[in-house]
Amino acid sequence: MRSSRRARFVHFLLLAVVAAFALFPLLWMLSVSLMAPGEASQFPPPMLPDKPGLSAYSSLFETTGITRYFLNSLLIATLGTALSLAFNTTAGYAFAKLRFTGRDRIFQLLLPALVIPAQVTMLPLFLMLKEIGLINSFAGVLVPVTASIFGIFLVRQYALSVPNELLEAARIDGASEWRIFLQIVLPTLTPIIITLALFTFLGVWNDFMWPLIILTDQEKYTLPVAIAALSREHVQDNELMMAGSVLTVLPVLLLFLVLQRYYMHGLMAGSVKG
């Protein structure tokens, strides 16, 4: 496309403005987290720390018990990812490649259910988990994460492209169905497994409302629940809160940067689901 120098200048100027809008809050969070106590509570607000230091981080670790919340989040997100992969890759493969009674009808019933907001299930789910004693447990947090319609759909679309001849050849050789799944199907599904793992991990790590409801004991809090509680206690302590935000956001941001290609694939696949 031909464009004049001025048009190109305006184009890059607008890009820079939008990029600054997107990144400034994140960069400033990092900057404030490195300030000395009280440094951020003045006017005009400082852009950069006078003497960058880790005092906010050390008081975060010493006074708030953040290590515990971080490990809780890590454990829950990791377990949730493992469970989601176990349930959804098997089901996605079955819906793509195995024939069983009612398969297509069930699949057609699953898709419209994507419009049901998860919050509708939260109240009855809370009562059900109370009956079986899973309130205030990691298992309770994980229950709605295990099987997901989105996950099944994502894997199924990808598994459709696994060649049938490959599966038939293995069956003729006498391989069991589990062996075919583990040794032939799973390796070909690797990219979509990474995508699903990434989506689940980020989803569980970032989730707020359900852990807030189900976790009553402070010891069991995940990072978002703990950050929300801390932000009510430490309203004035900006450096500390920004350090807590950095610690919460950084792991998912890094994961996204490393695995961005897989993330975008899932996003596009998810967006054609409607």
Partner: peptide, 21 residues
Amino acid sequence: TALFAPVVTTLVAVAVIWRYL
């Protein structure tokens, strides 16, 4: 990547940043 970054961040954590902004 730059413009997408806010999407993957943790809502609660960035809400705390914005409360301060």
